[in-house]
């Protein structure tokens, strides 16, 4: 019994060390998954995100789908990297709508002229209201919305060429 108490502090230290080492070695994950996946898209009615476009309302997605909803901004660097991939998805027949976060229509127009315009509808969310309502934590993010207007999948960060099969599979699943 005495021997046990002699070793107990060392055992305690080893456990403590193990917990800390585990926390340090484990890869850093700062992604915040939206809890809205599986729930209906929150209702919104946004003004047009680019000049000469119509506004974008959540009602527009009823009975249409599955579609992609891309959360982007003209001031967002990874969004530029993502643009050609979205274009490729559009050419494969995927309908993509967008919400421009904290943006001005003229800036969005410049962005689209430079990087291509894969979008069907673009809404302007100047105070990140819809972004917060969707549980989205940054730009870019892409959501799969099914025909019932339910969020089926969230992709955090830019869609890279290697992510395309996963996105297409999620769209197929939401059909």
């Amino acid at each position: 019994m005495k021997r046990f108490w002699l070793w107990a502090p060392l055992a305690g230290f080893v456990i403590f060390f193990g917990v800390v080492a585990f926390g340090l070695i484990r890869p850093d994950n700062r992604q915040i998954a939206s809890q809205m996946v599986g729930k209906p898209l929150p209702a919104f009615d946004l003004p047009a995100g680019a000049p000469g476009r119509t506004g974008f309302s959540s009602k527009d997605l009823q009975g249409e789908g599955p579609r992609l909803l891309n959360v982007f901004a003209s001031w967002c660097v990874p969004c530029i990297a993502e643009a050609p991939v979205l274009m490729q998805l559009k050419n494969q027949g995927v309908t993509i709508d967008a919400i421009a976060i904290r943006d001005r229509p003229e800036d969005v127009a410049t962005f689209l002229a430079r990087n291509g315009d894969p979008y069907d509808k673009i809404g302007s969310d100047t105070a990140s209201r819809v972004q917060l309502a969707m549980g989205s934590s940054g730009v870019p993010e892409t959501f799969v919305i099914d025909a019932k207007g339910v969020i089926r999948h969230q992709h955090i960060g830019d869609i890279r060429p290697e992510d395309v099969p996963e996105i297409l599979a999620q769209l197929e699943k939401a059909r």
Partner: peptide, 10 residues
């Protein structure tokens, strides 16, 4: 991490 495309998120 801007050049790696994560600057905006961090």
């Amino acid at each position: 991490r801007n050049l790696l495309g994560e600057g905006d998120r961090t």
